[in-house]
Amino acid sequence: MSTAVSPAPAASAAGDTPLLRLEGVSAGYDRAVILEDINLTLAEGETLALLGRNGVGKSTLIATLMGATVLRGGRMQWRGGDLVAVPAHRRSAAGLGWVPQERWIFPSLTVRENLAVTARPGKWTLERVYELFPRLQEREDNMGTQLSGGEQQMLAIARALLLNPRLLLLDEPLEGLAPVVVEELVRAIGQMTLDRDLSFILVEQHARQALELTSKAVVMDRGRIIYDGASDTLLHNPDHLNQLMGFA
């Protein structure tokens, strides 16, 4: 069982270039530093649960990957290149797909426009995301904000999938949703894990659900990583999980 904070674990296979590597990353908003000395590696096709209580810096880490925070120090590598040098608006083209915690559906756009406005060519097409979320097709002419919370979440995920990303950043996609909607979204995320070209980072407070869907887990506390290891390991050791999450 790996419990200690691991400084930038090696890539999945020796000599392989990881999809994402963070080394000593510190970042925050304006003058506030929220993330400190973050080291993290994710291989191609790997799935990661990013766990921790409210306010420990999970969403800030996701926003930092998208260039939406102020980077104070450290290195961020994307497929061997410097991610910091990639302007924020080019990160989706580089392969990062963002589903923010707030969903941020564009209210002035219809469902179809929300999906099409930034879609990029690839194996995720409008038809395929409609297969994954049939309700979106039924409501494609509605304005984005006329949807329920669960439908908005589906739209946010579908919108990110249509970028045809290599890494999907899902920030608390299950938060505040009815159990039946959570079930539907978990099923959809489960289907997405079958795509071996798609990695994702799943930020969740519901640790068990996230661990069941991912191969690797990271637990954060006060802006730092306090656990970096296999999801299975934590899933089978609930006491340790509770301790890390501060519930014990």
Binding site: M66, G67, A68, A88, H89, R90, R91, S92, A93, W98, P100, W104, F106, P107, S108, L109, N114, V117, T118, R120, R159, A160, L163
Partner: peptide
């Protein structure tokens, strides 16, 4: 319209 609605999200989705 997307850029006006939410410039941060629009940027994150690849809109300059």
């Amino acid at each position: 319209r997307a850029a006006v609605d939410n410039p941060v999200m629009a940027t994150g989705l690849g809109i300059n």
